[in-house]
Structure formats: structure tokens, C-alpha cells
Design a protein around this nucleic acid. Sequence first.
DNA 1: TCAATAGTGTCTATTAGACAGTATACC
DNA 2: GGTATACTGTCTAATAGACACTATTGA
Lengths: 308, 308
Amino acid sequence: MSGKNKVDRNGLTEEEFLRSYRPGDYERPSLTVDMLIFTVLSSAPENYRRTADKTLQVLLIRRGEHPFLGSWAVPGGFVGIHESIDEAAKRELKSETGVDHAYLEQLYTWGEVGRDPRMRVVSCSYMALVDRSQLLLQAGEDADDARWFDVSSEILSEEITPLPDGERRERRIRIVLENEDVRLEPVVQVTEHREGHGRTLSREVEDSGGLAFDHAKMIQYGIERLRSKLEYTDIAFALMPQLFTLSELQRVYEVILGKPLLAAAFRRKIAGRVEETEEYTREGGHRPSKLYRYRQAGEELDREEERI
Amino acid sequence: MSGKNKVDRNGLTEEEFLRSYRPGDYERPSLTVDMLIFTVLSSAPENYRRTADKTLQVLLIRRGEHPFLGSWAVPGGFVGIHESIDEAAKRELKSETGVDHAYLEQLYTWGEVGRDPRMRVVSCSYMALVDRSQLLLQAGEDADDARWFDVSSEILSEEITPLPDGERRERRIRIVLENEDVRLEPVVQVTEHREGHGRTLSREVEDSGGLAFDHAKMIQYGIERLRSKLEYTDIAFALMPQLFTLSELQRVYEVILGKPLLAAAFRRKIAGRVEETEEYTREGGHRPSKLYRYRQAGEELDREEERI
DNA sequence: TCAATAGTGTCTATTAGACAGTATACC
DNA sequence: GGTATACTGTCTAATAGACACTATTGA
């Protein structure tokens, strides 16, 4: 079955074929990884009573070279010929943040022809979720001009155009990327095209807002994936420190989903994913909050609910 | 902001830089697209009373060249330097099946170093869903040895290994690919690695079962994606003809999800996605079934539920 | 007539949403 | 004491699961 001993039309076995094989000379795209590195920042509350605000942040670097000199870009780099794409992603994450272990997920591979004006470049984007406390310890932040940006996104408009045998659905989404010095507001169009049995989804950058390449699309895609995974996986805990309060966790959900949640329902929902500790926070002029830790799904409570 | 007029450290504007830019000579991986083309087959019932069975199928081709000469592989090909990855995917779909419009979705990009013994090849996998009636009309099935295989998958085992600060979760999944002449049974290991804050998912081919390259992984990933999308999107309709009965639709869900569904609940759930017609099937020794068509989400019923 | 499927009504269990009410720290 | 948050109890609405029951055909 494996074809090891079969001979091809030239009478070669697989071993002979591989020994004589010379890669062709046709042009190949360059391959890069681009890293959407997300974290959550707690910013100091306005007064002693209020709790800390949470904001979702993404790491961008300021380009020091053409093209897009001076623009902000998602950090990334070329995939070496002797490393896997995953390894390249880990390497980039480490070099940008100093973080070794993080939630890491491949998102999407961007392969439009003109996306880099220099040459054909295909970029494989990854999402990394890092918890702030790790970042403070680990070195990180290369020599290059790397900065965290607060991220949010909103739907600007949604338009449905009927077609002879289907429809086109176009949503315009504004991303806001902001820190003390810079505010970028790219706009991305997400188009769903249905015709007969066909159905494809595509994204266009309507306004780069000062972001390099097609990175506005990448960021929009990353936020979308982060949001949807938040709702049906444990992904949020990758953004939390070892110990956290349920209110903090809820605020992380809220800032990423962009909507308020009801405390009672939220607590019911995540009850099985967390484990209480004996510790409490003592900060602010209000009732202290119990600290929890993440409970891996395996460690189910094996003691049955004790009944009378 | 765009850096068009800025000069870099060599005193070049972006235009000057691009004019003088020469792509480096470093080695680049080759880039291919690999197409997981799924369809659903209705096979003739055993006797006049029973309804047609549905099976999920995937298209594989028999390799006529080294490496893996004679093995079955997911159809695919190189991405041209002047076409986008999406275009390459559409081109491959068309050349293998003759189908122009289909549900098409990028799945994952496979970039392990040794996955092709000839040279470094990175493969971007896509999933295409085509409805059988299209296939019969359109030409398709190239000169090459292409065959449809019934697909199913089952979890063989699940093992959780505790680690100092986390755990490793390993599931072994057997895929069964079968037609009248061939039966392949690759086994794939899906490992979730958690350590501290880190969390990554990886797949290994435990037993290729006669499939070329790492295509067992690709197929397993494709089935997983198809299954999960079936539950929260309209993806199933891409596998259906224009007109279908709700029982047929349910059987498609059942064969893909690998479990029986309750008719009442199923009908409630998809009620908003379909639109009834005045037509009925008349086949088999039992009550005829009303034919439905897919209703795009936009065309909500604008007539309010009529009440008294 | 009857086997096999189509389709509906309804009871129950589970889950999500809403919101009031109690608890407790700090200034 | 008053404020801001922590946390719980409970009512209601919506959804999913179970299953019985009716409807309709071709041989």
C-alpha cells in the first residue's frame, strides 16, 4: 500500500525517485507567521470603591522598514525552511513577549496575490492568549517599537443584496485600536456570497486606518474567533492569572463579548469550570471576593453531591 | 501614516525601496492546496418500503507518482504564483469535480517539516461541500483515478495523563474510508497539551492506513469541522439538492453527527431555515413526504403569526 | 391490511434571563 | 451610614428530550 516497492512510469522505486528528485524552479510564495497576541489589562479604578476596569489588548509593532514604514503591524516573521509553522509561531511569540507557554491556535492563512507590495507573501496567522502576570515577569518587548493597543470592534452597517439565485451579505466592521499615543480605526468589510449551492466568505480592508498590509482583516478575524471560542470553550482562562475572582472573570467575558452579562447566570454557567480556594481579595470599599482557580475538565468532582 | 513619503534608514522612499527591492535567495517552502470534497450519497433502499440510506463521502485520488505511489490521497495541487489560495482551491475543485459554485471554507494549514519526503511543502486544506445532483450533471472525475469513499469516524480511546502543572489529553480516532473495492482505516491521535497557562492542540498520524502524506490528519480535521459547523450553521444545506424532505435532511444530519436525532425536536430546530413547497415525494410504500427548500436567513417570514 | 415512514401534540427536564434581596468591606 | 461590589434565591421564558399518537401510502 505504501508504494515503497512499487515502480513508477519511469521504472523507479520510491527510494530511487527521492534520491533523484530535484525540486522545480518555479516561483514560490514566501511564508510568514503573524501573531495576534491578546491579553487583558486591569487598569486602576477611579476611586477606592470601584473595581479595576478590564480591557482587551493586542500587541502591535511599529514598522521600521519599507513597505508601510512607520505603520503599525501585527508582529510576525518568516517561517524557516527547517522549522514547522507551529514552531515559527512559538518562536515569534517568545521573541516578542518572552512567553514560552501560552494558548496558541492557528487561525487563518492569508494568500491574496497583492497583499505585500514587495513580492508574493502568504501569511499564516495565529492567536496567542497570554495572561498579564506572565508578561510582567518575562522580559519581552524586543528592541523594536512594540506597543499594546486596547481593542474593540463594532458593526457599522449590514447590507443584504439579493442576487438572481442567492444573495450577498455585507457587514462593515470598525476596529478601534488605541493607546495613550495612537488611535487607529480600520474598517473591514466581511462579505458572504451565496449563489445557488455556492457559499463563500471573504474579507476586504475598506480603510486600513494606518495598519500595514491586510492586517486589519487579520485583527478582525482574530477578534471574531476569540469571541466565538469564548462562548463554547475554556479559552478565557488563558487570559486569567492563577487566582481570580468570578467578577473579574465575568468582566473579561464582558469586555471581549462587548455586552454585559447577568451575574447569576454567568456564575451558574462557569461553576463547573472553576474551583474555589480559601482566599479572598481585600481591595476596595466593598465586600471581599472569593478567589477561584481554573479546574481542568478532567478533575470532575468525584464526590457525589452529598444529600440527606 | 502610510509611509509613502517617509524615507527609511537608507534614505529611500517607499517607491524607491520597492523599485530596488530584490527578493532574497533563502529557501521557501512550496505551497499547495488540498481539497476535502464532501458529498452525501443516497443509496437505493433494500425494499420498496424503506427509504434511501445516506452516506457521507469524500473524494480521494489514487497517486500515480512517487512518493506514495498507488496510495490514496486528498486531491490538491500547487498554488500558482499569480493566483490567491482561494483561487487555487476553486480551480482544484473545478478540475476534480467540474463544480463551479460550492460551499468552500479554508480549514487549516499543515506545515510540519517532514510531511513530504521530496521537499518542504506546506499545504493549506479546504473543505468543499457539494450536492450530489450537481456532480451528476457536471463532468468531473478527471482522467486520474478519483473515487468517492464512504467516511465515518469513531473514537477508539481517550487517555488523560496528569503533568506537574497541567495535563495531556490524548484521543485516538479511527477514520473508516470505504468503497466497493477499497477499505482504509487510518488512526489519528489528537493531543491536547496543557501546561501552566499554555495550551496547544496537535495531531499525529498513528497509522496512515494506506493514505498518502499526513492526509489522515487532514481528513480527521475536516470531519471534525464539518460536524461542529453542522450544529451551529446552515452548512448542511450545501449538501442538499434544491428540494428535499425533512426526513432526508435529518438523515444527513444523523450520518454526519453519527447519532440518531428525534424527529420532533429536529423539525422544531430547523423550522426557521426551511420553506415548504406544495410538492410531495411519492416513493415507497408509506406516507408521502412534503418537499422543502432552503430559506436564506434574510427572508424571514414578514407575515406575523396569524392569531385570532 | 400492514409495514414503514411522515408528521404533530404534549409532557417533562434543562438551561438561560431577569431581578430582587442579602452580605460585607472600606472610608 | 452609605456606597459599591459579592453572592444567592427564585420566578419565568425558552429550548431540548422523550414519546405517544395520528396520517398516508403501495404492494
